[in-house]
Design a protein around this nucleic acid. Structure first.
Length: 882
RNA sequence: GGGAGCAUAGCUCAGUUGGUUUAGAGCAUCUGCCUUACAAGCAGAGGGUCGGGGGUUCGAUUCCCUCUGCUCCCACCA
């Protein structure tokens, strides 16, 4: 059958994915084998595949496929995250487009819309992962809002509440006026934002009437002056001695507020006088507590001014700012404004400017939980790769603050707290239990009177249970309960592959939950990928439009090509600057593999042919070289150096197997290949496809199936990964000398314009093993290799040295003596410089005294080699110039 | 403002406890080839005073200090 000269991934990829899927190769059940487990970082249920997912999931797939082929019971658990705020925002937007306001429908109605949306869009990203070749155990697909997963979340909440670690309190939280919810500190992104510093004049009050004296304060938020409850100076600031104990009037509303003293104020910033707005600034809030100041909250949920502002009621905060500035100017209270850059917090999800706001929220105490979680990493029980993240991790864990776990949303697990009519509350995992608890407080309360807290839990409060709850949803919340069979088999998982951005959001919290409920780490290694950027180093984003569509890329270059292209240039923790030329390189490699297959399959076997000497040598070399390479690859994998392992395989296949091995054993045109060589070649090819399979699963399956006759239901993905055998480094270096000689001869041909088709002879003096002669003859088109002594006096030719072995290629009438001399002189100069530096070391007494023996030996060898080479070159030079 | 990291060939990166022939790879570049597996290819070649300066050492790309330039994280001095 004719095989196409170009590999066409579209002919193979979906076929083999279906083959694997149909035979249940991705599925894992606990058995006697050693488990190898990865849980996927669950992507947002409504998300679509982006380049970051491609990188992240390719890495996971490589690890899982390799583990599976190494005899482990590999299990990769997929799933999605309900992503409360992101999904809710999308559903709200979708309803709005249909003319439905969230405020006009009930919670139940909203949730049914949300589930509908989830059913429609929820599977997309997982389907896209299949195109990439992800060998997830799809039968285990989980969703963080599956009923049993939600139950685990509720039990967890009840557990921590009973333990006294969950509390409810009024705190300054990050309010997202667009998302209409509180968000955690980690979900706030501070960006340097140009704004203005306004200097405003507050007149001193004399019995409520403005005097002619005043004080200036500086603020970036003039719209909040109506919420001021004091003006503050530093107690040591003598400039304001006259002011202390006085009262001032808030401009525009003429409200009298006291002047207080607090060391928080910096004397050298602004005017040294600070307005205190406890409701709208975290520091002011704390000062307010110290000085017993009232809190005046002038903003509503939408960050519009409310009636407490007295003026501009109903205006948005930013419009109010402009208007207040104008009004202050008119009233003569505005002294000046200067440009000022400040760090403004933005919501990660909605990009709205975060409003610090006092509200009643649920919190989880973190100080105790963080300690063991920190210890696991510091004691290397959990390895972070690369380990530079240990510092970052420690810093965060040592400064962790209580976790605000309530969100004012509907999409998520509703907080299991029920309020009694008098405002007291009970926490229980369901209404019945809550009622029992409530009866203890009020024996007359009915079930119907209980009202559940309307907030839901932060999404991370469910995903931090992920490595536990995907196996045993009954376990979270019950540290003492025996783990089920699945959990005790698969947990702790092996590797977690994720982005450094969520090291704290997610990774650290999984460690805490793992410790709390299982008394053990959730995973052994955390591989942190870099961020995928464009080639200018910019983050990929929708607004820049610099993100390629992964699906289109896979259609154009093949999933294998994309996987390879991404992985070639991505070491752990390093950002990858993505360029389409990389996937092109990936595709080219697929094509190379394809064509090697075409060549080998095109050969006919000649049963009568003897194995030529060069083929026997090539087989022996490749056997040795392959074992050595496998050893290095294993080492790379042990250290999570995936791109190094891949690069080595890339060269092993392209250069060593194709350019050297196959070229050596290639039979003459029209001739068949002997059966011994053919047999060995198929074995090598088979081993190479297995080694390559974790990286490029589709094409390796396609070729592996065709290499030999396979049993029904056989697959390269369930075949054994080749292991290293004993090998001889001496033999490998002896072969390498032949390779160097060949390259030198080809180089001479190129320099002299001699066609590869024109045969040459070669003279050798030194240690080229005679077994290698046949290799040199075939690869450099040499008719015979002779001892230098047979050369005679002729100097018409070109010489070169490999290590200390001399080679000479006679080139009658083609040699320019001057050119040869120049070449030799250049090499002599280099060698003499080298020798000089070596001699300098060896004649240095301190070096001889303190350098290790080995190092001295190496230097001595360097000296003797260089000396021999110089002697030989000088002799050659003499002969030539005669 | 505090902390961490990075700086090696045109580009992307290796360089494993300081010594392995006076720095390696892939891509890109240049030269010659349509050689009957592959032009998405073959063969060959060029290219770096390891960011600047100082120090420790017999010896520094590797360790220390400093400067410069980037990156990231944490931090709400209005």
């Amino acid at each position: 059958m004719e095989i196409s000269a170009k590999y066409d991934p579209s002919q193979t990829e979906s076929k083999w994915y279906k083959y694997w899927l149909d035979r249940g190769f991705f599925h894992s059940e606990p058995n006697d084998k050693e488990p190898y487990t990865i849980v996927i970082p669950p992507p947002n249920v409504t998300g679509v595949l982006h380049m970051g997912h491609m990188l992240n999931n390719t890495i996971q797939d490589v690890l899982v496929r390799r583990a599976r082929m190494s005899g482990k019971n590999a299990c990769w658990v997929p799933g999605t995250d309900h992503a409360s705020i992101a999904t809710e925002a999308k559903v709200v937007a979708k309803l709005k487009a249909e003319g439905i306001e969230k405020s006009d429908i009930t919670r139940e109605e909203f949730l049914s819309h949300a589930w509908e949306w989830k059913e429609k869009h929820g599977g997309i990203i997982l389907e896209q992962l299949k195109k990439l070749g992800a060998s997830c155990d799809w039968e285990r697909t989980s969703f963080t809002m599956d009923p049993q997963m939600s139950k685990a979340v509720i039990n967890t909440f009840v557990h921590y509440y009973k333990k006294g670690l969950i509390y409810r309190g009024v705190r300054m939280v990050n309010w997202d006026p667009e998302g209409q919810t509180a968000v955690s500190d980690e979900e706030v992104i501070h960006k340097d934002t140009p704004s203005k510093l306004y200097y405003i004049r507050y007149y001193i009050s004399e019995n409520g009437i403005a005097s002619d004296k005043f004080v200036e304060i500086a603020t970036t938020r003039p719209e909040t002056i109506m919420a001021d409850t004091a003006v503050c100076v530093h107690p040591m600031d003598e400039r304001f001695n006259w002011l202390k104990g006085k009262k001032v009037l808030i401009p525009l509303i003429n409200k009298e507020i006291p002047v207080i003293e607090d060391e928080y104020v910096s004397m050298d910033f602004g005017t040294g006088c600070l307005k205190i707005t406890p409701a709208h600034d975290i520091n002011d809030y704390e000062i307010g507590i110290r000085h017993n100041l009232p809190v005046v909250d002038i903003l509503d949920n939408f960050a519009r001014l409310n009636e407490k502002a007295i003026i501009l009621v109903g205006e948005d905060r930013f419009i109010a700012r402009k208007r207040v500035v104008m009004m202050l100017a008119e009233s003569g209270n505005m002294v000046k404004e200067e440009p000022y850059n400040s760090q403004i917090g933005y919501s990660e999800r909605t990009n709205a400017v975060i409003e610090p706001r006092l509200s009643l929220q649920w919190f989880l105490k973190m100080d105790q939980a963080s300690k063991p979680a920190l210890a696991y990493v510091m004691e290397d029980k959990i390895k972070l790769i690369p380990d530079k993240y240990r510092n970052t991790y420690r810093h965060w864990m040592e400064n962790v603050k209580d976790w605000c776990i309530s969100r004012q949303l509907w999409w998520g697990q509703q907080i299991p707290a029920w309020y009694l009519p008098d405002g007291k509350y009970v926490v229980a995992s369901n209404l019945d239990d809550a009622h029992k608890e409530a009866l203890r407080i009020d024996s007359s309360v009915t079930k119907e009177q209980l009202r559940q807290d309307s907030d839901v839990l932060d999404t991370w409060f469910s995903s931090w249970l992920w490595p536990i709850s995907v196996f045993d949803p009954e376990k979270p919340g019950f540290p003492d309960r025996e783990p089920n069979r699945e959990l005790s088999y698969y947990y702790p998982t092996n590797d977690l592959v994720t982005a450094p951005e969520i090291l704290f959001f997610w990774v650290a919290r999984m460690v805490m939950a793992g410790h709390e409920f299982c008394g053990d780490i959730p995973f052994k290694n955390v591989y942190l990928t870099g961020t995928v950027r464009d080639k200018l180093g910019r983050k990929m984003s929708k607004s820049l439009g610099n993100s390629p569509d992964p699906i289109k890329l896979m259609e154009e270059y093949g999933a294998d090509g994309v996987r390879l292209g991404m992985l070639l240039c991505s070491s752990a923790g390093n950002d990858i600057l993505f360029d389409e030329s990389q996937v092109e390189q990936g595709r080219n490699f697929s094509n190379k593999v394809w064509n090697a297959y075409r060549l080998v399959k095109g050969w006919s076997i000649d049963p009568d042919a003897f194995q030529p000497n060069q083929s026997a040598i090539a087989v022996k070399w490749f056997e040795n070289h392959l074992s050595q390479s496998i050893e290095i690859i294993n080492d790379h994998f042990d250290k999570f150096r995936l791109s190094d392992a891949l690069m080595l395989l890339y060269k092993l296949f392209w250069d060593d197997f194709c350019a050297w091995y196959l070229e050596i054993i290639k039979p003459a045109f029209g001739k068949g290949v002997d059966s011994e060589t053919h047999k060995q070649t198929i074995i090598f090819f088979d081993q190479l496809t297995r080694l390559l399979h974790p990286f490029i699963p589709f094409i390796t399956e396609e070729l592996w199936q065709g290499l030999s006759k396979r049993e029904i239901n056989e697959s390269v993905m369930t075949a054994q990964m080749p292991t290293a055998q004993l090998y001889s480094t001496d033999f490998i270096s002896s072969f390498n000398m032949a390779k160097s000689a060949i390259v030198n001869i080809r180089s001479i041909r190129q320099a002299k314009g001699i066609s590869p088709k024109e045969p040459l002879t070669l003279f050798v003096k030194g240690s080229l093993h005679e077994d290698m002669n046949s290799i040199v003859c075939k690869m450099a088109n040499i008719t015979s290799v002779m001892d230098m002594s047979k050369k005679g006096d002729s100097v018409s030719g070109s010489s070169f040295m490999v290590e200390t072995t001399e080679f000479f290629v006679p080139l009658e009438g083609m040699v320019n003596v001057q050119e040869e001399l120049t070449k030799i002189d250049a090499e002599l100069k280099h060698l003499e410089g080298f020798l000089k530096s070596v001699n300098a070391k060896l004649s240095n007494e301190k070096f001889m005294a303190s350098a290790p023996e080995q190092v001295v030996e190496i230097e001595l060898k360097k000296r003797s080699d260089a000396t021999i080479k110089i002697e030989k070159l000088k002799k050659l030079r003499e002969e030539l110039s005669r």
